[in-house]
Design a protein around this nucleic acid. Sequence first.
RNA 1: GGAGAGGUGGCAGAGUGGUCGAAUGUACCUGACUCGAAAUCAGGCGUAGGCGCAAGUCUACCGAGGGUUCGAAUCCCUCCCUCUCCGCCA
Length: 421
Amino acid sequence: MLDIQTLRSDIQSVEKRLESRGFSLDVAYFQKLEADRKKVQTATQELQAKRNAASKSIGMRKAKGEDASDIMAEVSNLGEELKQNEARLEEIQGKMQEFLLSIPNLPHESVPFGQSEADNVQLKRCGHPKDFGFEVRDHVSIGEGLSMLDFETASKIAGSRFTLMKGPLARLHRALSQFMLDLHTSEHGYVEVYVPYMANSDSLRGTGQLPKFEEDLFSVSNGYYLIPTAEVPVTNMVRGEILDRESLPLKFVAHTPCFRSEAGSYGKDTRGMIRQHQFDKVELVQVVHPERSYHALEELLNHAEEVLRRLELPYRVVTLCTRDIGFSAAKTYDIEVWLPAQNTYREISSCSNFESFQARRMQARFKSEGKNELVHTLNGSGLAVGRTLVAIMENFQQEDGSVVIPEALRPYMGGVGVIYP
RNA sequence: GGAGAGGUGGCAGAGUGGUCGAAUGUACCUGACUCGAAAUCAGGCGUAGGCGCAAGUCUACCGAGGGUUCGAAUCCCUCCCUCUCCGCCA
């Protein structure tokens, strides 16, 4: 959520900055709403003040045993008018809130301007795609060749876009999340957290999934939603809190399953486990002092990259352009891993600074010299586990259909160095 | 699932219709005393928002949402959460 004060004071520049990400701000609507609000709120508060004063003097007279029927008659006439004003004010404020919740974040000045995904800027490229010397297979072919990846059974159990893994491949999947958690907790200073896999609508509103993106979520009974990312439960840990300045930065890492309905992506990545309704992810979340958030973003990116370096996977980092950054983000780096079978780089992590956008929705603040100030929040995948598994299968495949285990993972695999069919 | 108790300011804890945004204690901040500290004394000390150049002033908030009333922390209704005991379960 943007600060309503900046909309009041300088809506033109807000409009302009939002335009760069393809969002057209309804300035006239805002100004109309704001004018109405001002008028009705002032009137309502005046009536309330009048009523309060009258009621107070009734109380004072009654305490002295005096008659107060004249004031009571007077103030009872206020009732209807006040009620109407209050209802009208509530309506306007509701509309204003809805309007504010639907506006995306302002892109940071360092975000490259662009019209589409094609305008994202490659920041760096690390590692070298291997020269295989044989016809590479994709992870589906490799996994099924190993008899360890079974989409048919998964769809029998649940439906399309689910995965079933068996044996050493399932273990490799588990090894990956263990490895990532250990790296981030022991070397990068994150505190491991275990969190609910369902969240309420307040939480989803806090991080920006609601109200705009409900169709991407799975909802269950009792008003719960399955989390689409650990970002939701972890970031919402600080919702409504006033933190000590000294406690910042907070750095959390969580391994959770993520559930996404992937509405509107039918026909995209239908083969394999690239785009699933359920996938595991290790998520990094930081809650920081506003002055430190861009430094923290670089640090966070580096933490995610480190996973790929240790796994010896070739990757590149791109800075998303204004048109491609997500709704809540001010700036985002995507890390893309090399997938030889697709002969391209595919997203495996997204690291974003949300500045105060989520914090304002969540009312997450810290005390600074007696004043309350909004924190900045960041998160990044460190990494998407399923896609990392895909990357390992494809980058470490051998001609006979076996898959070599990267050195860093072998302690987690009971010393196994190669997975054979 | 059954029975009971309860949700008030950072914490503790009073307040069952009226000068209550809320006593008191404690923590914290400022000042006085002190060489300094402790103790003591005095003052300050919640959140969100409106109006205003400002000083300031007004409004809302006592788990959430409705209702009754001139007036609600206090009465009524619905919901949520926490705790204790029992049952069940991993």
